[in-house]
């Protein structure tokens, strides 16, 4: 590949990228409420924090579920131990 072809390729690819970036900037100027880069970054942080908060709620829900499953596991262990000894104890109350 000659150097001339390489330059043409670079011009074509990055020239198209420039056009795409102009369109993107135009589209964002219509819908973006932030007036400055600092505001846009702050908005991005707020959106990020909202996602993190949502994930934290989901994690909390999953932790509760894991706790329930651990209790169920204990219950089954007691049953298995009783059956193994042949002294099936009174079955503990179900959770």
């Amino acid at each position: 590949m000659s150097i001339g072809t390489v330059i043409t390729l670079i011009a074509a690819v990055l020239g198209s990228s420039t056009l795409a970036a102009i369109i993107t900037a135009f589209v964002n100027s219509k819908r973006n409420k932030s007036q400055s880069e600092t505001e846009a970054r702050a908005q991005y942080t707020v959106e990020f924090n909202a996602i993190v908060a949502q994930q934290n709620i989901q994690i909390e829900r999953l932790e509760k579920r894991v706790n329930q499953l651990e209790k169920a596991e204990d219950y089954i262990d007691v049953l298995i131990a009783g059956i193994t000894n042949g002294t099936i104890p009174p079955i503990p109350p179900r959770i």
Partner: peptide, 11 residues
């Protein structure tokens, strides 16, 4: 605008 012009300068 800066965002839109960076690819041209990069080119």
């Amino acid at each position: 605008i800066e965002y839109a012009t960076i690819p041209a300068m990069a080119a």
